[in-house]
Simulated scan of single mutants.
Amino acid sequence: MDGSDNAHHGPQDRLAEALAPDMAAVNAIIRARMASEHAPRIPEVTAHLIEAGGKRIRPMLVLAAAHICGYPARNPGGEDHQKLAATVEFIHTATLLHDDVVDESAQRRGRPTANLLWDNKSSVLVGDYLFARAFQLMVEPGSLRVLDILANASATIAEGEVLQLTAARDLATTEDTYIRVVRGKTAALFSAATESGAEIAGATPDQVRALYTYGDALGIAFQIADDLLDYGGTSAVIGKNTGDDFRERKLTLPLIKAVAKADAEEQAFWTRVIAKGDQHEGDLEIALSLMERHGALAAARADALTWAATARAALAPLPDHPLRAILGDLADFVVSRIA
């Protein structure tokens, strides 16, 4: 798929159109639960983030999974799928608030981050508030299994963040560790979204498993593509500058692959720029040429495409449904930026 003709009508847009009535209800739930009469700082900070025009892909995954598995038809007037969609968006927003503090970020989706506009304390505490709100919401459908899925995802996300801290700048970081970090950072919430949507719809164990696998593989493909774009995307596409990960000395997949094949001289270069952070003008260009020399970018791209194919294939056992086709296209779309 080429990005240009899909920019205005890609699978995300088609998903948003198909789920528009549901998403209006989800947004109403988010606004109502964001309110705080005692601490006006809370809605101020959350509104800044939630209205920043994120794609809302995670709540849409909950709704799509529930629809594919027959939830609204089986439960007319039921709101549980919408509550779970709002829960997932709250968990996501809470992690963004905490992430920006941890990463000392100044921008998110092209706008100043909350920690920059307010302060780190507000960002951390409002993130905590959103986590608490998420747990209140996820109890309401009354499903222990759904609670289990979302509570486990919350733990995996936190674990992934801590693992990323210890793996950062450590040249011994393996591809396995990278995937574990990515599962925490991105894939855990994608798979929790699709799995909980299937679960609330009373899907069969095979269907629940299929949707878990889809979310997991989609999240990993998405993150690898994002990491690749850092070494060749335009800032307009990714909302950050090319080479940010390099400057922040993050060990993403292209870098890990290049380091694994480095000779002694290259190893010394990686030690200087990543382990020690002693970076000079022109080092990014050298890093890119080393990645190119060892086929690291091409290999990372191949991995992303494999994960996207895994996501698409996982949908096979699900009922035939227009939304199933859109989820299949979404898997291709997340890697179309690097294909």
Rank of each mutant, 00 (worst) to 15 (best):
S4Y: 14
D5Q: 13
N6S: 07
N6V: 04
A7K: 09
H9F: 07
G10P: 00
G10A: 02
G10R: 01
P11M: 06
L15Q: 00
A16T: 15
E17V: 12
D22P: 00
M23F: 07
N27Q: 14
R33K: 12
R41P: 01
I42Q: 13
V45Q: 12
A47V: 04
E51I: 05
G54V: 08
R56I: 05
R56S: 06
P59I: 06
P59L: 08
L61C: 07
V62P: 07
A66M: 06
I68S: 11
C69S: 14
Y71L: 10
R74M: 05
E79H: 10
D80K: 07
A86Q: 01
H92N: 00
L96C: 09
D99H: 13
D103F: 12
Q107V: 14
R111N: 12
P112T: 10
T113V: 10
N115D: 05
L116G: 08
D119S: 02
N120I: 04
S122H: 09
S123L: 02
V126F: 15
F131D: 05
Q136I: 10
M138K: 10
V139G: 11
L144P: 05
D148Y: 01
A153Q: 00
S154D: 01
S154F: 02
A155Q: 14
A155G: 09
G160M: 01
L163F: 11
L163R: 15
T177L: 04
T177R: 11
Y178L: 00
K185T: 06
S191E: 15
A192L: 11
S196F: 10
A198Y: 07
A198M: 04
I200H: 01
T204S: 15
T204G: 13
T204W: 09
L211K: 02
Y212M: 03
D216E: 15
A217G: 03
A221W: 13
A225Q: 12
D226A: 03
D230M: 06
G233C: 01
A236G: 14
A236V: 12
I238L: 15
T242D: 01
D244N: 08
E248Y: 10
V259E: 05
A262H: 00
R272L: 04
R272K: 11
I274G: 03
A275M: 02
K276I: 00
G277Q: 06
H280A: 12
E285K: 11
L288T: 02
S289F: 04
M291Q: 03
R293P: 04
H294R: 08
L305G: 04
W307G: 03
A311I: 01
A314K: 01
L318Y: 07
H321A: 03
G328L: 12
F333I: 07
V335L: 06
I338D: 01
A339N: 03
